[in-house]
Design a protein around this nucleic acid. Structure first.
Length: 572
DNA sequence: GCCGTTTTCGGCCCGACTGTTTTCAGTCG
């Protein structure tokens, strides 16, 4: 049972308690624990097996700890005597509908005796729903509408796509008079790998004018709500975009509040209350005097609370607040720290651009080095290199290095790992290369045991410097292959193999919590783009985002080092 | 159910918007 599955059980428990009308703080406790479990960097099943303490996970106390142990050991959780008797049948399905909370779900199930979404639709059409207490035509219609939205609801979209939407919107709104500081907050700013909706913040002298401009943008499909300072719309494809406008001098507290995460803000507020402050998007209120202090910047806001500035990417209710109180927030890695890209394809295999163009583009980015790592031949579709063409490419790179100044092109290859763990290129060829990547591009459905055997065998090869896109997942769509991350990290440490943080927006692999764990263990990591064209070198900013989420500093990543130090850190 | 630089008991973040009401409950973020 993995963390996601365990978390799901506790989310469900919270829903059921909510339906029962339980103490809301108890419900929140379960939600909080679920959320912590979901984001934990270690697998709980492992922790339970090793008999270690679960109480270090925030929000997990005596009771929930015992429930996690039961759950992991038996696969079940007995919390309700007879859930079927206690809850109207089918009630939890209603909770998935946006705008339907526990109160409404309960009302629908008990008053109308319906159990499915289909029955609910029929009940709305026949007018039975709008006659219920505190319901009306409009509410019923909204529920119907939201059922349809739920059906065509796309999954969370990869951050790469969301950033494109934001770029479009900000470009269209930039000329609205008096609008300033228009930026994305929320999960986008925290750089979560996928985004559920987009939260835009801005400041303006005339909020209403901005709200009007926003809600009448050409690609706005539907207006969900529109108030004086805030509006929510749906754009084509179903993505929800929220805009919130405030006064210029409130920008710091506004941005802080809407960047979240929710849990980060809750902890921050509790802490502030103990200091006699109440926090809101408008600023900090002194509870005794009722006086409101405004903040134009987030830095000033955190400072007022006695905290070091906390970068958005780590505002996830881990240990960031207590660390900030002690001044222990590290300087997280930045784009400017990166000195080279180590995973680049050219038109020698399936890339679009030439060796020369890639080298020039890397130099333009200020890099000291770039490794050319075209595919090996095993990947039929990618016109991969065999020994002979690899030899020619090495010669071409040597020649290029003679001509180039200010950047060193390293020879390399992304060699395929076969199903039996053998590499798709003889060692005599690999040994000549500066940098060798091994990775999997086929046989994704192997069992955990086979998969690990295959990967570890490749890592044990002294010519293999890096194991790339370690879980092979694709966003959205392909689930990670059966990799045991703890075992992988151990093997990486033992063999001195580097793990890649692949920046391709459809991969982001290692992901944030794996990066966090690998860093804790001292596993060597490289951030690289897997470029197939010169534009892709720009994917590095995605890697920076997720590496920061994993609390990475420059020293945790090998390609922040100057060339000589970088080469010295490789296996050979 | 969790948790502690007031507390091992008594608290638990804060505000906007909608739709239904006629002062507010429910939902959301």
């Amino acid at each position: 049972m993995n963390n996601t599955e365990i978390a799901k059980v506790f989310y469900d428990v919270a829903d059921l308690l909510d339906l029962k009308g339980e103490n809301p703080f108890k419900i929140r406790a379960y939600q909080k624990a679920a959320r912590s479990i979901e984001h934990s960097s270690v697998e709980l099943e492992q922790v339970v097996k090793e008999g270690k303490n679960l109480r270090e996970i925030p929000g997990v106390g005596e009771a929930i700890e015992q429930k996690i142990i039961d759950l992991v050991k038996t696969g079940k959780l007995k919390l309700f005597e007879d859930p079927k008797k206690e809850f109207p049948k089918g009630i939890t399905t209603f909770l998935d509908i946006p705008g339907v909370g526990p109160k409404t779900a309960n009302l629908l199930a008990t008053e109308l005796g319906i159990t499915s979404i289909e029955e609910l639709e029929a009940a709305i059409v026949s007018g039975r729903v709008s006659k219920l207490y505190r319901m009306g035509d409009k509410t019923a219609e909204n529920i119907l509408h939201n059922i349809q939205a739920l059906r065509r609801k796309d999954q969370r979209i990869p951050i790469g796509e969301a950033l494109t939407v934001v770029d479009e919107i900000t470009a269209q709104l930039k000329d609205v008079p008096g609008l300033k500081n228009l930026v994305a907050a929320g999960s986008l700013r925290r750089f979560r790998e996928t985004i559920g909706d987009i939260d835009l913040m801005g400041t303006a002298s005339d909020a209403e004018a901005v709200i009007n401009a926003f809600t009448t943008l050409p690609f706005v499909h539907e207006i969900i709500s529109r108030g004086q300072t805030k509006a929510s719309v749906r754009v084509a494809g179903g993505l929800q975009v929220d805009l919130r406008i405030m006064e210029h001098e409130d920008f710091g507290s506004l941005l802080q509040y809407f960047t979240g995460s929710k849990e980060h803000n809750i902890i921050l507020r509790k802490r502030a209350l103990r200091q006699g402050f109440s926090l809101s998007e408008y600023g900090i209120t002194d509870v005794k005097t009722g006086e409101l202090e405004k903040f134009a910047t987030e830095e000033a806001f955190y400072k007022r609370l006695g905290l070091q500035y906390i970068p958005p990417e780590i505002r996830e209710a881990g240990r960031e607040i207590e660390k900030a109180a002690k001044g222990e927030i590290p300087r997280l890695i930045e784009l400017g720290d990166i000195k080279g890209d180590l995973h680049v394809h050219t038109d020698w295999s399936d890339g679009r651009d030439s060796l020369e163009d890639e080298a020039a583009a890397a130099k333009e980015r200020g890099y000291e080095y770039i490794a050319i790592t075209d595919h090996s031949r095993g990947l039929g579709i990618t016109k991969g290199l065999d020994v002979e063409r690899l030899g020619k490419q090495i010669a071409a790179i040597k020649e290029l290095n003679r001509k180039l100044k200010g950047i060193r092109v390293l020879t390399g290859m992304e060699v395929d790992i076969h199903a039996d763990g053998k590499l798709d290129m003889p060692d005599e060829a690999l040994v000549k290369l500066d940098f060798v990547i091994a990775s999997i591009h086929s046989g994704f459905n192997e069992s955990r045991e086979k998969m690990m055997g295959r990967i570890i065998k490749a890592m044990e090869n002294p010519n293999v410097d890096m194991y790339a896109h370690p879980t092979c997942r694709l966003l959205p769509g392909r689930e990670p292959v059966a990799v045991d991350m703890e075992e992988l990290f151990k093997a990486a440490l033992r063999t001195g193999t580097i793990l890649e943080i692949n920046a391709s927006p459809g991969r982001l692999d290692l992901k944030d919590k794996h990066i966090y764990r690998a860093r804790e263990l001292g596993v060597k990591m490289i951030m690289s783009t897997d470029s197939h064209s010169v534009e892709h070198l720009g994917f590095m900013r995605f890697d920076i985002g997720i590496a920061r989420r994993g609390w990475c500093e420059a020293k945790d990543v090998l390609n922040t080092r100057p060339l000589r130090e970088f080469l010295a850190a490789l296996k050979k």
